[in-house]
Amino acid sequence: MCTVCGCGEGETRIEGHDHEHEHGHANMHDHDHAHHHSHDHHHYGEGPAHAHAPGMSQSRMVQIEQDILGKNNEYAAANRRYFNAHGVLALNLVSSPGSGKTTLLTRTIDDLKGELKLSVIEGDQQTANDAERIRATGVKAVQINTGKGCHLDGHMVGHALESLQPDDGSVLFIENVGNLVCPAAFDLGEAHKVAILSVTEGEDKPVKYPDMFHAADLMLLNKTDLLPYLDFDVQKCIDYARRVNPGIRVLQLSARSGEGMASWYQWIRATRQVALIERPDLAASA
């Protein structure tokens, strides 16, 4: 059990995180326990037992009025403050398994690592294979294994940041667990969620999994080099995505052939400039 924030070891494993929080922990997370405005209400006479007699034991009601995800949102807010203070652009990459997320990421890293400082947090239920694939490109990466968990949460990412130590002014890619459902609800403190959909999947995925496409700011339509062999209707897919999220941006690309990747890189550069708003001293570096 983690003594600072009370996190159990559970099945979650974070590379480099050994549950010793003495070093530099306090500035990564806000672990002060917020006051939740809860107060007890002694509803005497209104309790389930309708007991009026003074001194008679009865159960009492405690008002909580707290968001179930409130704790996660506090961790995410701490991560976001860290990213803003360090000029780190954090992108949360979400997709179903097999959309080509890791291939897209390794190609992006190979093409951009000469120009930008990059690092990666990899989320998978098991194995460190993806982090190893990323480290093979020469970029810092930390693997989080969620065990039974189906998504990354703000707390896991906060701990991963301690061992990853992304450079100031860098771009951090957080590759979430392949899942279009759960990661939608869990804020990690990222600047943007980027949803990756490949044309080998159904074009109606945006309306089948509306929460995720609603939460994403950018949709990358991947594997477009395969379009000649498929019946995938690109315009219909984009229409579906706009139906759940009128403001979503869509880029068509293929991580394999490289077509369309330049627009994705341009989006990263532009978005990074926004992430540097609080750190103009870092803006000149790229």
Binding site: G6, H33, H36, S38, V62, I64, Q66, I68, L69, G70, K71, N72, K148, G149, C150, H151, D153, V181, C182, A185, F186
Partner: peptide
């Protein structure tokens, strides 16, 4: 969805509330 982890968050809130 992720009901199991939501329940874990609920338990954490309950435990904190119990202490307070």
């Amino acid at each position: 969805m992720h009901e199991l982890s939501l329940c874990e968050s609920i338990l954490r809130v309950i435990e904190q509330s119990a202490a307070e």
